[in-house]
Design a protein around this nucleic acid. Sequence first.
DNA 1: GCCGACTGACTGACTGTTCAGTCTATGGAG
DNA 2: CTCCATAGACTGAACAGTCAGTCAGTCGGC
Lengths: 231, 231
Amino acid sequence: MAGRGAEQSAGEIVDQRRDQMLVAAAELITERGFSETRIADVARRVGASPALVIYYFGTKDELLTGALRYSEEKFYVACNEMLANTPGVRERLEQLVRLTCVPDGNDQVGGAWGLWFDLWAQAFRHPLVAKDRLELEKRWRSTIAGVVADAVTSKEIPQVDADDFAVTWAVLLDGLSIQVALADPIVDAERAYDIAMRFAEQALGLPMGRAARRRSGTRKPTAKKSRSGRP
Amino acid sequence: MAGRGAEQSAGEIVDQRRDQMLVAAAELITERGFSETRIADVARRVGASPALVIYYFGTKDELLTGALRYSEEKFYVACNEMLANTPGVRERLEQLVRLTCVPDGNDQVGGAWGLWFDLWAQAFRHPLVAKDRLELEKRWRSTIAGVVADAVTSKEIPQVDADDFAVTWAVLLDGLSIQVALADPIVDAERAYDIAMRFAEQALGLPMGRAARRRSGTRKPTAKKSRSGRP
DNA sequence: GCCGACTGACTGACTGTTCAGTCTATGGAG
DNA sequence: CTCCATAGACTGAACAGTCAGTCAGTCGGC
Protein backbone atom coordinates (compact mmCIF):
# COMPACT_ATOMS: atom_id res chain seq x y z
CA MET A 1 0.00 0.00 0.00
CA ALA A 2 2.07 2.88 1.27
CA GLY A 3 5.53 3.43 -0.11
CA ARG A 4 7.26 2.69 3.15
CA GLY A 5 6.16 2.11 6.66
CA ALA A 6 7.57 3.70 9.77
CA GLU A 7 10.02 0.82 10.16
CA GLN A 8 13.57 2.05 9.79
CA SER A 9 16.60 -0.17 9.43
CA ALA A 10 18.80 1.29 12.14
CA GLY A 11 19.59 4.47 14.01
CA GLU A 12 15.97 5.61 14.32
CA ILE A 13 16.66 8.29 11.73
CA VAL A 14 12.96 8.62 11.29
CA ASP A 15 12.02 10.16 8.01
CA GLN A 16 12.21 13.90 8.15
CA ARG A 17 9.86 14.31 5.25
CA ARG A 18 7.23 12.22 6.91
CA ASP A 19 7.35 14.33 10.04
CA GLN A 20 7.22 17.52 8.05
CA MET A 21 4.02 16.31 6.47
CA LEU A 22 2.56 15.26 9.80
CA VAL A 23 3.32 18.66 11.27
CA ALA A 24 1.94 20.48 8.26
CA ALA A 25 -1.20 18.36 8.34
CA ALA A 26 -1.71 19.04 12.03
CA GLU A 27 -1.32 22.76 11.46
CA LEU A 28 -3.77 22.72 8.60
CA ILE A 29 -6.30 20.71 10.53
CA THR A 30 -6.08 23.31 13.26
CA GLU A 31 -6.53 26.15 10.83
CA ARG A 32 -9.18 24.81 8.48
CA GLY A 33 -10.59 21.74 10.11
CA PHE A 34 -10.14 18.06 9.51
CA SER A 35 -12.22 17.61 6.41
CA GLU A 36 -11.28 20.96 4.92
CA THR A 37 -7.67 19.92 4.79
CA ARG A 38 -6.61 18.86 1.30
CA ILE A 39 -3.58 16.81 0.47
CA ALA A 40 -2.66 19.48 -2.01
CA ASP A 41 -2.42 21.95 0.89
CA VAL A 42 -0.18 19.69 2.90
CA ALA A 43 1.95 19.07 -0.17
CA ARG A 44 2.30 22.77 -0.89
CA ARG A 45 3.27 23.53 2.69
CA VAL A 46 6.14 21.07 2.65
CA GLY A 47 7.09 22.01 -0.91
CA ALA A 48 6.22 18.74 -2.55
CA SER A 49 3.70 17.31 -4.95
CA PRO A 50 0.40 15.80 -3.82
CA ALA A 51 1.58 12.52 -5.23
CA LEU A 52 4.43 12.42 -2.77
CA VAL A 53 2.09 12.73 0.16
CA ILE A 54 0.19 9.71 -1.10
CA TYR A 55 3.52 8.04 -1.68
CA TYR A 56 4.28 8.36 2.01
CA PHE A 57 0.89 7.76 3.56
CA GLY A 58 -0.98 5.78 0.97
CA THR A 59 -4.23 7.48 1.70
CA LYS A 60 -5.52 10.81 2.88
CA ASP A 61 -7.20 9.32 5.90
CA GLU A 62 -3.97 7.72 6.99
CA LEU A 63 -2.25 11.09 6.79
CA LEU A 64 -4.86 12.96 8.77
CA THR A 65 -5.38 10.44 11.52
CA GLY A 66 -1.61 10.12 11.64
CA ALA A 67 -1.40 13.86 12.22
CA LEU A 68 -3.89 13.54 15.06
CA ARG A 69 -1.85 10.81 16.69
CA TYR A 70 1.31 12.78 16.16
CA SER A 71 -0.11 15.78 17.97
CA GLU A 72 -1.33 13.69 20.86
CA GLU A 73 2.11 12.21 21.21
CA LYS A 74 3.82 15.58 21.14
CA PHE A 75 1.48 16.87 23.80
CA TYR A 76 2.15 13.88 26.02
CA VAL A 77 5.89 14.21 25.63
CA ALA A 78 5.76 17.91 26.41
CA CYS A 79 3.84 17.13 29.59
CA ASN A 80 6.37 14.68 30.88
CA GLU A 81 9.25 16.90 29.99
CA MET A 82 7.68 19.74 31.90
CA LEU A 83 7.00 17.57 34.93
CA ALA A 84 10.59 16.37 34.99
CA ASN A 85 11.74 19.97 35.36
CA THR A 86 9.10 21.22 37.77
CA PRO A 87 9.03 20.44 41.49
CA GLY A 88 6.09 21.04 43.79
CA VAL A 89 2.43 20.12 43.34
CA ARG A 90 1.17 23.64 42.93
CA GLU A 91 3.70 24.53 40.28
CA ARG A 92 3.12 21.28 38.46
CA LEU A 93 -0.61 21.66 38.39
CA GLU A 94 -0.23 25.24 37.25
CA GLN A 95 1.90 24.09 34.36
CA LEU A 96 -0.66 21.48 33.40
CA VAL A 97 -3.36 24.12 33.28
CA ARG A 98 -1.15 26.30 31.14
CA LEU A 99 -0.47 23.40 28.84
CA THR A 100 -4.15 22.84 28.18
CA CYS A 101 -5.70 26.26 28.47
CA VAL A 102 -3.05 28.47 26.97
CA PRO A 103 -4.91 30.87 24.68
CA ASP A 104 -2.79 30.90 21.58
CA GLY A 105 0.52 29.14 21.93
CA ASN A 106 0.71 28.40 18.23
CA ASP A 107 4.38 27.56 18.29
CA GLN A 108 3.81 25.79 21.58
CA VAL A 109 2.63 22.22 21.78
CA GLY A 110 -0.72 22.61 23.46
CA GLY A 111 -1.72 25.51 21.29
CA ALA A 112 -3.29 23.44 18.56
CA TRP A 113 -6.72 23.95 19.96
CA GLY A 114 -9.00 23.55 17.04
CA LEU A 115 -7.38 20.20 16.64
CA TRP A 116 -9.03 18.81 19.76
CA PHE A 117 -12.46 19.59 18.41
CA ASP A 118 -11.74 17.62 15.29
CA LEU A 119 -10.16 14.85 17.32
CA TRP A 120 -13.32 14.52 19.38
CA ALA A 121 -15.58 14.67 16.36
CA GLN A 122 -13.49 12.04 14.65
CA ALA A 123 -13.29 9.83 17.72
CA PHE A 124 -17.04 10.03 18.07
CA ARG A 125 -17.53 8.34 14.73
CA HIS A 126 -14.43 6.30 14.02
CA PRO A 127 -13.50 3.50 16.43
CA LEU A 128 -9.81 3.57 15.60
CA VAL A 129 -9.50 7.25 16.44
CA ALA A 130 -11.60 6.61 19.53
CA LYS A 131 -9.09 4.03 20.71
CA ASP A 132 -6.21 6.48 20.32
CA ARG A 133 -8.06 9.20 22.13
CA LEU A 134 -8.89 6.87 24.99
CA GLU A 135 -5.26 5.93 25.30
CA LEU A 136 -4.28 9.59 25.48
CA GLU A 137 -6.98 10.26 28.05
CA LYS A 138 -5.71 7.43 30.22
CA ARG A 139 -2.16 8.72 30.09
CA TRP A 140 -3.37 12.21 30.80
CA ARG A 141 -5.31 11.09 33.85
CA SER A 142 -2.48 9.01 35.17
CA THR A 143 -0.15 11.96 34.69
CA ILE A 144 -2.40 14.08 36.88
CA ALA A 145 -2.84 11.26 39.36
CA GLY A 146 0.91 10.80 39.44
CA VAL A 147 1.47 14.42 40.39
CA VAL A 148 -1.03 14.13 43.20
CA ALA A 149 0.27 10.79 44.39
CA ASP A 150 3.80 12.20 44.50
CA ALA A 151 2.57 15.07 46.61
CA VAL A 152 0.80 12.71 48.98
CA THR A 153 3.83 10.54 49.57
CA SER A 154 6.01 13.59 50.06
CA LYS A 155 3.48 14.86 52.62
CA GLU A 156 2.92 18.03 50.65
CA ILE A 157 -0.81 17.44 50.77
CA PRO A 158 -3.06 15.26 52.92
CA GLN A 159 -4.23 11.82 51.84
CA VAL A 160 -6.64 12.02 48.93
CA ASP A 161 -7.90 9.72 46.19
CA ALA A 162 -5.51 10.66 43.40
CA ASP A 163 -7.33 8.79 40.66
CA ASP A 164 -10.65 10.28 41.60
CA PHE A 165 -9.21 13.77 41.54
CA ALA A 166 -7.52 13.13 38.22
CA VAL A 167 -10.74 12.11 36.53
CA THR A 168 -12.68 15.13 37.72
CA TRP A 169 -9.91 17.61 37.16
CA ALA A 170 -9.22 16.33 33.66
CA VAL A 171 -12.87 16.75 32.81
CA LEU A 172 -12.84 20.25 34.22
CA LEU A 173 -9.81 21.17 32.15
CA ASP A 174 -11.49 19.86 29.03
CA GLY A 175 -14.45 22.10 29.62
CA LEU A 176 -12.28 25.09 30.38
CA SER A 177 -10.16 24.59 27.31
CA ILE A 178 -13.26 24.64 25.13
CA GLN A 179 -14.23 28.05 26.39
CA VAL A 180 -10.73 29.41 26.08
CA ALA A 181 -10.34 28.00 22.60
CA LEU A 182 -13.65 29.51 21.54
CA ALA A 183 -12.57 32.87 22.95
CA ASP A 184 -15.45 33.04 25.40
CA PRO A 185 -15.53 36.57 26.82
CA ILE A 186 -16.24 35.35 30.34
CA VAL A 187 -13.99 32.32 30.57
CA ASP A 188 -10.70 33.58 29.23
CA ALA A 189 -7.34 32.03 29.98
CA GLU A 190 -7.00 33.81 33.28
CA ARG A 191 -10.42 32.87 34.51
CA ALA A 192 -9.86 29.31 33.41
CA TYR A 193 -6.68 29.26 35.43
CA ASP A 194 -8.51 30.55 38.48
CA ILE A 195 -11.29 28.00 38.22
CA ALA A 196 -8.94 25.09 37.73
CA MET A 197 -6.59 26.07 40.53
CA ARG A 198 -9.34 26.94 42.96
CA PHE A 199 -10.86 23.53 42.44
CA ALA A 200 -7.50 21.86 42.93
CA GLU A 201 -6.80 23.83 46.09
CA GLN A 202 -10.08 22.83 47.60
CA ALA A 203 -9.94 19.20 46.54
CA LEU A 204 -6.34 18.66 47.57
CA GLY A 205 -6.23 20.85 50.64
CA LEU A 206 -3.63 23.11 49.11
CA PRO A 207 -3.15 26.54 50.64
CA MET A 208 -5.22 29.13 48.81
CA GLY A 209 -3.32 30.81 46.03
CA ARG A 210 -3.89 34.04 44.17
CA ALA A 211 -6.69 32.42 42.18
CA ALA A 212 -9.00 32.00 45.13
CA ARG A 213 -8.06 35.35 46.61
CA ARG A 214 -8.62 37.15 43.34
CA ARG A 215 -12.10 35.77 42.86
CA SER A 216 -13.39 36.22 46.37
CA GLY A 217 -11.95 39.68 46.54
CA THR A 218 -13.09 40.93 43.17
CA ARG A 219 -16.48 39.39 42.84
CA LYS A 220 -19.58 40.38 44.75
CA PRO A 221 -20.48 37.31 46.75
CA THR A 222 -24.17 37.36 45.86
CA ALA A 223 -26.13 36.61 42.72
CA LYS A 224 -26.36 39.79 40.70
CA LYS A 225 -29.21 39.98 38.31
CA SER A 226 -29.58 36.52 36.85
CA ARG A 227 -33.05 35.74 35.65
CA SER A 228 -35.31 33.30 37.36
CA GLY A 229 -34.93 29.71 36.32
CA ARG A 230 -38.64 29.54 35.66
CA PRO A 231 -39.23 31.83 32.67
CA MET B 1 -30.73 33.96 -3.19
CA ALA B 2 -32.86 31.60 -1.12
CA GLY B 3 -36.39 30.84 -2.24
CA ARG B 4 -38.04 32.18 0.86
CA GLY B 5 -36.88 33.35 4.23
CA ALA B 6 -38.30 32.36 7.57
CA GLU B 7 -40.73 35.26 7.44
CA GLN B 8 -44.31 34.02 7.26
CA SER B 9 -47.29 36.19 6.41
CA ALA B 10 -49.64 35.18 9.23
CA GLY B 11 -50.51 32.38 11.60
CA GLU B 12 -46.93 31.33 12.26
CA ILE B 13 -47.62 28.19 10.28
CA VAL B 14 -43.93 27.85 9.88
CA ASP B 15 -43.05 25.78 6.91
CA GLN B 16 -43.25 22.14 7.79
CA ARG B 17 -40.99 21.19 4.97
CA ARG B 18 -38.33 23.54 6.18
CA ASP B 19 -38.40 22.09 9.68
CA GLN B 20 -38.29 18.57 8.34
CA MET B 21 -35.13 19.44 6.49
CA LEU B 22 -33.60 21.12 9.51
CA VAL B 23 -34.32 18.08 11.67
CA ALA B 24 -33.01 15.71 9.04
CA ALA B 25 -29.87 17.78 8.64
CA ALA B 26 -29.28 17.85 12.39
CA GLU B 27 -29.68 14.07 12.56
CA LEU B 28 -27.30 13.55 9.70
CA ILE B 29 -24.72 15.90 11.17
CA THR B 30 -24.90 13.88 14.37
CA GLU B 31 -24.49 10.60 12.53
CA ARG B 32 -21.89 11.45 9.95
CA GLY B 33 -20.44 14.78 10.90
CA PHE B 34 -20.90 18.27 9.57
CA SER B 35 -18.86 18.08 6.43
CA GLU B 36 -19.87 14.52 5.63
CA THR B 37 -23.46 15.57 5.35
CA ARG B 38 -24.63 15.92 1.75
CA ILE B 39 -27.65 17.77 0.57
CA ALA B 40 -28.64 14.65 -1.30
CA ASP B 41 -28.80 12.81 2.05
CA VAL B 42 -31.01 15.43 3.61
CA ALA B 43 -33.23 15.42 0.54
CA ARG B 44 -33.58 11.67 0.56
CA ARG B 45 -34.47 11.63 4.23
CA VAL B 46 -37.35 14.04 3.76
CA GLY B 47 -38.39 12.45 0.48
CA ALA B 48 -37.57 15.34 -1.78
CA SER B 49 -35.12 16.22 -4.48
CA PRO B 50 -31.79 17.87 -3.73
CA ALA B 51 -32.95 20.82 -5.79
CA LEU B 52 -35.76 21.44 -3.34
CA VAL B 53 -33.37 21.70 -0.44
CA ILE B 54 -31.46 24.36 -2.33
CA TYR B 55 -34.80 25.94 -3.19
CA TYR B 56 -35.48 26.37 0.53
CA PHE B 57 -32.05 27.21 1.86
CA GLY B 58 -30.21 28.60 -1.10
CA THR B 59 -26.94 27.12 -0.05
CA LYS B 60 -25.62 24.10 1.75
CA ASP B 61 -23.93 26.17 4.39
CA GLU B 62 -27.17 27.95 5.18
CA LEU B 63 -28.85 24.61 5.68
CA LEU B 64 -26.20 23.14 7.94
CA THR B 65 -25.64 26.16 10.14
CA GLY B 66 -29.41 26.50 10.27
CA ALA B 67 -29.59 22.96 11.56
CA LEU B 68 -27.04 23.80 14.24
CA ARG B 69 -29.07 26.82 15.34
CA TYR B 70 -32.24 24.78 15.26
CA SER B 71 -30.77 22.17 17.58
CA GLU B 72 -29.48 24.78 19.99
CA GLU B 73 -32.92 26.30 20.14
CA LYS B 74 -34.62 22.98 20.74
CA PHE B 75 -32.22 22.24 23.56
CA TYR B 76 -32.88 25.60 25.15
CA VAL B 77 -36.64 25.20 24.90
CA ALA B 78 -36.47 21.71 26.40
CA CYS B 79 -34.48 23.11 29.32
CA ASN B 80 -36.99 25.75 30.15
CA GLU B 81 -39.91 23.40 29.77
CA MET B 82 -38.29 20.99 32.18
CA LEU B 83 -37.56 23.72 34.70
CA ALA B 84 -41.14 24.91 34.58
CA ASN B 85 -42.29 21.46 35.68
CA THR B 86 -39.61 20.71 38.25
CA PRO B 87 -39.48 22.22 41.73
CA GLY B 88 -36.46 22.10 44.05
CA VAL B 89 -32.83 22.87 43.36
CA ARG B 90 -31.57 19.36 43.65
CA GLU B 91 -34.14 17.96 41.26
CA ARG B 92 -33.62 20.78 38.82
CA LEU B 93 -29.88 20.37 38.77
CA GLU B 94 -30.28 16.64 38.36
CA GLN B 95 -32.45 17.20 35.34
CA LEU B 96 -29.91 19.58 33.85
CA VAL B 97 -27.22 16.96 34.21
CA ARG B 98 -29.47 14.40 32.58
CA LEU B 99 -30.19 16.80 29.76
CA THR B 100 -26.52 17.20 28.94
CA CYS B 101 -24.97 13.90 29.87
CA VAL B 102 -27.63 11.43 28.88
CA PRO B 103 -25.77 8.64 27.09
CA ASP B 104 -27.96 7.99 24.10
CA GLY B 105 -31.26 9.79 24.13
CA ASN B 106 -31.48 9.82 20.38
CA ASP B 107 -35.16 10.65 20.33
CA GLN B 108 -34.53 13.06 23.18
CA VAL B 109 -33.35 16.61 22.64
CA GLY B 110 -29.98 16.53 24.31
CA GLY B 111 -29.05 13.25 22.75
CA ALA B 112 -27.57 14.75 19.64
CA TRP B 113 -24.12 14.51 21.04
CA GLY B 114 -21.91 14.33 18.07
CA LEU B 115 -23.53 17.54 17.05
CA TRP B 116 -21.84 19.51 19.80
CA PHE B 117 -18.43 18.49 18.58
CA ASP B 118 -19.21 19.79 15.16
CA LEU B 119 -20.74 22.92 16.62
CA TRP B 120 -17.56 23.64 18.51
CA ALA B 121 -15.34 22.89 15.54
CA GLN B 122 -17.47 25.14 13.38
CA ALA B 123 -17.61 27.91 15.97
CA PHE B 124 -13.85 27.79 16.28
CA ARG B 125 -13.43 28.79 12.67
CA HIS B 126 -16.55 30.65 11.63
CA PRO B 127 -17.43 33.87 13.46
CA LEU B 128 -21.15 33.64 12.74
CA VAL B 129 -21.43 30.21 14.27
CA ALA B 130 -19.28 31.42 17.13
CA LYS B 131 -21.77 34.19 17.82
CA ASP B 132 -24.64 31.72 18.00
CA ARG B 133 -22.75 29.41 20.25
CA LEU B 134 -21.86 32.24 22.57
CA GLU B 135 -25.50 33.24 22.77
CA LEU B 136 -26.46 29.69 23.68
CA GLU B 137 -23.71 29.51 26.26
CA LYS B 138 -24.95 32.72 27.85
CA ARG B 139 -28.50 31.46 28.05
CA TRP B 140 -27.28 28.15 29.42
CA ARG B 141 -25.27 29.84 32.15
CA SER B 142 -28.08 32.15 33.07
CA THR B 143 -30.42 29.17 33.24
CA ILE B 144 -28.13 27.51 35.76
CA ALA B 145 -27.64 30.76 37.62
CA GLY B 146 -31.40 31.24 37.67
CA VAL B 147 -31.94 27.87 39.33
CA VAL B 148 -29.37 28.73 41.98
CA ALA B 149 -30.68 32.24 42.52
CA ASP B 150 -34.18 30.90 42.97
CA ALA B 151 -32.90 28.48 45.59
CA VAL B 152 -31.09 31.26 47.40
CA THR B 153 -34.13 33.50 47.60
CA SER B 154 -36.29 30.63 48.73
CA LYS B 155 -33.71 29.87 51.45
CA GLU B 156 -33.18 26.37 50.12
CA ILE B 157 -29.45 26.98 50.07
CA PRO B 158 -27.15 29.53 51.69
CA GLN B 159 -26.03 32.67 49.94
CA VAL B 160 -23.67 31.90 47.05
CA ASP B 161 -22.46 33.60 43.91
CA ALA B 162 -24.91 32.14 41.42
CA ASP B 163 -23.13 33.41 38.32
CA ASP B 164 -19.79 32.13 39.47
CA PHE B 165 -21.24 28.73 40.15
CA ALA B 166 -23.00 28.72 36.80
CA VAL B 167 -19.81 29.37 34.88
CA THR B 168 -17.85 26.63 36.61
CA TRP B 169 -20.63 24.11 36.59
CA ALA B 170 -21.38 24.67 32.93
CA VAL B 171 -17.74 24.09 32.12
CA LEU B 172 -17.74 20.93 34.19
CA LEU B 173 -20.82 19.62 32.40
CA ASP B 174 -19.18 20.29 29.04
CA GLY B 175 -16.21 18.21 30.02
CA LEU B 176 -18.35 15.44 31.39
CA SER B 177 -20.53 15.32 28.34
CA ILE B 178 -17.49 14.84 26.15
CA GLN B 179 -16.48 11.75 28.04
CA VAL B 180 -19.97 10.34 28.07
CA ALA B 181 -20.43 11.04 24.39
CA LEU B 182 -17.14 9.35 23.58
CA ALA B 183 -18.17 6.35 25.67
CA ASP B 184 -15.25 6.65 28.05
CA PRO B 185 -15.13 3.47 30.11
CA ILE B 186 -14.37 5.36 33.31
CA VAL B 187 -16.63 8.37 32.98
CA ASP B 188 -19.94 6.86 31.99
CA ALA B 189 -23.29 8.56 32.48
CA GLU B 190 -23.57 7.44 36.09
CA ARG B 191 -20.12 8.61 37.04
CA ALA B 192 -20.72 11.90 35.26
CA TYR B 193 -23.86 12.35 37.28
CA ASP B 194 -21.97 11.67 40.49
CA ILE B 195 -19.22 14.12 39.69
CA ALA B 196 -21.57 16.89 38.68
CA MET B 197 -23.85 16.49 41.65
CA ARG B 198 -21.06 16.12 44.15
CA PHE B 199 -19.57 19.35 42.94
CA ALA B 200 -22.92 21.08 43.16
CA GLU B 201 -23.55 19.79 46.65
CA GLN B 202 -20.24 21.06 47.87
CA ALA B 203 -20.41 24.41 46.11
CA LEU B 204 -23.99 25.14 47.06
CA GLY B 205 -24.05 23.63 50.51
CA LEU B 206 -26.66 21.09 49.51
CA PRO B 207 -27.11 18.04 51.71
CA MET B 208 -25.06 15.11 50.39
CA GLY B 209 -27.03 12.96 48.00
CA ARG B 210 -26.49 9.41 46.81
CA ALA B 211 -23.72 10.56 44.51
CA ALA B 212 -21.37 11.56 47.30
CA ARG B 213 -22.30 8.58 49.40
CA ARG B 214 -21.78 6.17 46.57
CA ARG B 215 -18.29 7.40 45.79
CA SER B 216 -16.95 7.63 49.30
CA GLY B 217 -18.44 4.26 50.17
CA THR B 218 -17.31 2.38 47.10
CA ARG B 219 -13.89 3.80 46.43
CA LYS B 220 -10.79 3.21 48.45
CA PRO B 221 -9.86 6.61 49.80
CA THR B 222 -6.20 6.43 48.86
CA ALA B 223 -4.33 6.54 45.60
CA LYS B 224 -4.03 3.02 44.26
CA LYS B 225 -1.16 2.38 41.99
CA SER B 226 -0.90 5.45 39.82
CA ARG B 227 2.53 5.99 38.38
CA SER B 228 4.81 8.74 39.50
CA GLY B 229 4.43 12.04 37.73
CA ARG B 230 8.12 11.93 36.92
CA PRO B 231 8.57 9.01 34.52
C1' DG C 1 -53.45 31.77 -16.85
C1' DC C 2 -50.71 32.56 -13.05
C1' DC C 3 -47.91 31.25 -9.24
C1' DG C 4 -45.46 28.66 -6.17
C1' DA C 5 -43.87 24.05 -5.03
C1' DC C 6 -41.23 20.86 -7.01
C1' DT C 7 -38.15 17.88 -10.10
C1' DG C 8 -34.81 15.52 -13.49
C1' DA C 9 -31.11 16.20 -15.95
C1' DC C 10 -27.17 18.50 -16.27
C1' DT C 11 -22.65 20.88 -15.34
C1' DG C 12 -18.59 22.72 -13.62
C1' DA C 13 -15.40 22.62 -10.19
C1' DC C 14 -12.87 20.15 -7.09
C1' DT C 15 -9.81 16.58 -5.43
C1' DG C 16 -8.08 11.88 -4.05
C1' DT C 17 -5.55 8.65 -6.34
C1' DT C 18 -2.94 6.36 -10.23
C1' DC C 19 0.72 5.88 -13.29
C1' DA C 20 4.46 6.25 -16.25
C1' DG C 21 8.37 8.02 -16.09
C1' DT C 22 12.54 11.40 -14.39
C1' DC C 23 16.28 12.40 -11.51
C1' DT C 24 19.84 11.36 -8.09
C1' DA C 25 22.65 8.59 -5.31
C1' DT C 26 24.86 4.42 -4.39
C1' DG C 27 27.60 0.53 -5.11
C1' DG C 28 29.66 -3.20 -7.27
C1' DA C 29 32.10 -4.90 -11.54
C1' DG C 30 35.47 -4.23 -14.82
C1' DC D 1 38.28 5.78 -12.02
C1' DT D 2 34.46 4.68 -15.19
C1' DC D 3 30.30 2.46 -16.36
C1' DC D 4 26.13 0.45 -15.66
C1' DA D 5 22.30 -1.28 -12.82
C1' DT D 6 19.28 -0.84 -9.24
C1' DA D 7 16.51 1.55 -5.91
C1' DG D 8 14.19 5.03 -4.01
C1' DA D 9 12.53 9.80 -3.90
C1' DC D 10 9.84 12.46 -6.48
C1' DT D 11 6.70 14.65 -10.15
C1' DG D 12 3.24 16.10 -14.00
C1' DA D 13 -0.53 14.85 -16.09
C1' DA D 14 -4.41 12.48 -16.41
C1' DC D 15 -8.45 9.89 -14.44
C1' DA D 16 -12.56 9.09 -12.08
C1' DG D 17 -15.77 10.04 -8.79
C1' DT D 18 -18.34 13.25 -6.12
C1' DC D 19 -21.37 17.06 -5.27
C1' DA D 20 -23.16 21.77 -4.84
C1' DG D 21 -25.67 24.45 -7.45
C1' DT D 22 -28.42 25.68 -12.14
C1' DC D 23 -32.17 25.60 -15.20
C1' DA D 24 -35.89 24.71 -17.98
C1' DG D 25 -39.87 22.90 -17.37
C1' DT D 26 -44.03 20.09 -15.02
C1' DC D 27 -47.94 19.90 -12.04
C1' DG D 28 -51.78 21.30 -9.24
C1' DG D 29 -54.55 24.73 -7.09
C1' DC D 30 -56.76 29.19 -7.33
